[in-house]
Amino acid sequence: MFDSKFSRVLIVNFVTASIITFVACYFLKTFNMTDVMHIANIFGLYFLVIFGVDILIESGDLKNNRDRFLLVIALIVVFDLIFLIFTPLIFGNVFSINDYLTFIVNGARFDLILNTPIYLIIFAAIMLIFNYLLYRKDKKLYGSE
């Protein structure tokens, strides 16, 4: 599974996804929208996890089974950690903002704090759902492998 072509495709996709993310971060910083800097992560994640893994499935370098999901989970964790480490180093302290979502149910107040790690978990869940949908489509297309 980890031959030179597979590794090369992963590295190129990872670098390209990082470039896409940091360009989106630069765009958001230019327009003084640092409150939503975490949204730039979803662009890179989409390219890396959806497009990149689909290339590997189509080329036959990765089987369309649980290996797909293990790779996707590993890529999401590594990409999010790199995003959380390098974005503040490059663009300053842009993750200090927290959003609050308040629910009032039968007089009881529930405050949900939405900070950057929570948003990254939500984005990861969205990417896993997209991968599951692509898995089902590819399973029909390529047969169960």
Rank of each mutant, 00 (worst) to 15 (best):
I104N: 15
N115K: 15
D111E: 14
N106L: 12
D111M: 04
P117S: 11
L112F: 13
L101Y: 15
G92M: 02
P88H: 10
T87F: 05
T102M: 13
I90D: 08
N93C: 01
N106F: 14
V94C: 03
G92V: 00
F95G: 04
I97R: 14
L114T: 00
T116P: 11
P88N: 09
N98V: 06
I113Q: 12
T102V: 15
N115R: 13
G107Y: 02
P117E: 04
I90C: 07
D99I: 08
F103S: 00
N115P: 00
V105N: 07
N106I: 06
N106P: 00
F110D: 01
I118Y: 11
A108S: 11
G92A: 02
I113E: 13
G92L: 01
L112R: 03
I118G: 00
L101E: 13
I113C: 09
T116Y: 12
V94G: 03
G92D: 02
V94P: 08
G107L: 07
F91L: 05
N106C: 07
T116R: 12
V105S: 09
F95C: 03
P88Y: 10
R109S: 12
T116C: 08
L114S: 02
F103M: 04
G107R: 00
S96W: 02
D99A: 13
Y100G: 06
V94I: 12
I118K: 06
L101T: 13
S96V: 04
L89E: 11
R109L: 10
S96Y: 03
F91D: 11
